[in-house]
Design a protein around this nucleic acid. Structure first.
Lengths: 258, 258
DNA sequence: CATGTTTTGTGATTTTTCTAACATTTTTTT
DNA sequence: AAAAAAATGTTAGAAAAATCACAAAACATG
């Protein structure tokens, strides 16, 4: 990609941020180049803007649900996550202060918040923040710091203190691995502090993972299973289920299947 | 519209709720009918679902709302801002730690950062952060807090302390009003603390405003003109220019015209 | 300033989407 | 059960969009 091309894309991106589409011809006119050049720009770009039937739309704006075809979404566990989040949303009440963890698992939860009008969301994830910022009735508190690309989230030394100062009601936590003996873990160490602080601060802790995470151990352990009040999981393959129910009664965790 | 048709539409609507698109062929397969039937269903419906380039989308999906030419008006401003930012970018060197202010003025500056690979950007604006996060070679530090929709930025009590702790090289500041006697001002009071802290911390302060801001006073004053080393402005209408040059020599500020 | 490279434009070609007409099937009515 | 009506499928052609190939222009470089 070249400099001028990047500038045109930025120009178009600015036009499309906040939603909407523009037709190829319109985009070409706007940038003062031919339609073919716009096509080439978009094709060579990182995929932030895509074509849909001769129109340009923002694709990766987390503010919106993905544009991809539904069968692709099916493949990427999109529907599974949607179901999980639907279950999770049932715990939310008007006036709550929610902690929402980073990752893609809890993204569908954000779009379910639009029906409330007195929520506060605390997060340290950029994608979550961008999505929440678009909701009119939801207050957003972003815990800043140094950005980590790997998890689209921020990390800082005093994040735990910042979380302590907030009155968090319910914490929705995601994880990359959940094991009854070895606890709940994630990939990145900078996520440990905010997760722990949120779990400690929250009245109710809800762990949301899809079933591929069960029995898996990742490098950064941040809690034991007993730290959570509810585990929301999708039990398509119910084989491991019975053993998990045993663990559940042992740790008093409540398992919900989406 | 007929009963079976309504049922198919309901089914498709369910698949599309929460955004996303579904291709005509996919929809036909999903409902077990021909593509033509889906077309007829959609055509005869109330308009909740619409076609866009062979794909079905919910009509109320803001992502697909046609954004008619936000042209000239916003477009011309955009190019002005682009010029301003091009001037501003000339001050940036490899290895710098930049403070980038909120607003739309400095957005084009972000896309100009992609040619560097050892920059650090400090900001308290969500739109700036989102844009910087996409750049591979740039470290991002976001100053978090409570989100303010009006300026797409965050505010918190300890932001000034957080800025003090950072080694900021160059501060790029935007403003809603610049007046030689009454100083530099913005609309929102929560912007004052970070702007002041950044100005105090930075080695070099660069004020970037378009000429419509000259001679304007806004509610929240955050600095005098003498606090800045450089003022970058577009001098299309050069009328006020001579008087500004006088102020410039008085305050030792360097005026650049884009 | 000539040279080679990159970027952009143009027109031809292929693919996809849209529309319309008519055939076929299903449902309803008599 | 036959006829009529409604719904759906099939095909063909028009329109739009996507791709390709090459020419022209802009840019960089020695």
């Amino acid at each position: 990609m070249n400099g001028r091309s990047a500038m045109r894309l930025a120009r178009l991106q600015e036009a499309l941020v906040g939603g909407g589409t523009i037709h190829l011809s319109e985009a070409a006119r706007l940038c003062g180049v031919s339609e073919m050049t716009i096509r080439r720009d978009v094709a060579a770009s990182d995929g932030a803007i895509v074509f849909i039937g001769g129109r340009l739309v923002m694709a990766d704006n987390p503010q919106f649900a993905p544009v991809y075809d539904l069968d692709e979404q099916r493949g990427s566990h999109y529907f599974a996550k949607q179901r999980l989040c639907h279950e999770a949303a049932a715990f939310i009440e008007e006036g709550d202060t929610l902690f929402i963890d980073c990752g893609t698992t809890l993204m569908p939860l954000v779009s379910l918040l639009s029906s409330f009008n007195a929520l506060t969301v605390v997060t340290y994830a950029l994608n979550v923040a961008s999505a929440v910022a678009a909701l009119p009735g939801v207050r957003l508190i972003l815990l800043g710091g140094l950005y980590h690309d790997s998890s689209q989230s921020f990390g800082s030394d005093d994040m735990d203190e910042a979380i302590e100062r907030l009155g968090i009601n319910k914490a929705f936590i995601s994880a990359a691995g959940v094991d009854p003996e070895r606890g709940v873990s994630c990939f990145h160490f900078h996520e440990v502090a905010p997760k722990r602080a949120a779990i400690a601060a929250a009245t109710q802790c809800i762990l949301v993972v899809d079933e591929t995470k069960l029995g898996v151990i990742r490098p950064a352990r941040f809690a034991g299973l007993e730290a959570f009040d509810v585990l929301i999981c999708d039990g398509e393959a119910g084989q491991a289920l019975s053993s998990w129910q045993r663990h559940a009664t042992a740790t008093r965790i409540r398992i919900l299947l989406a």
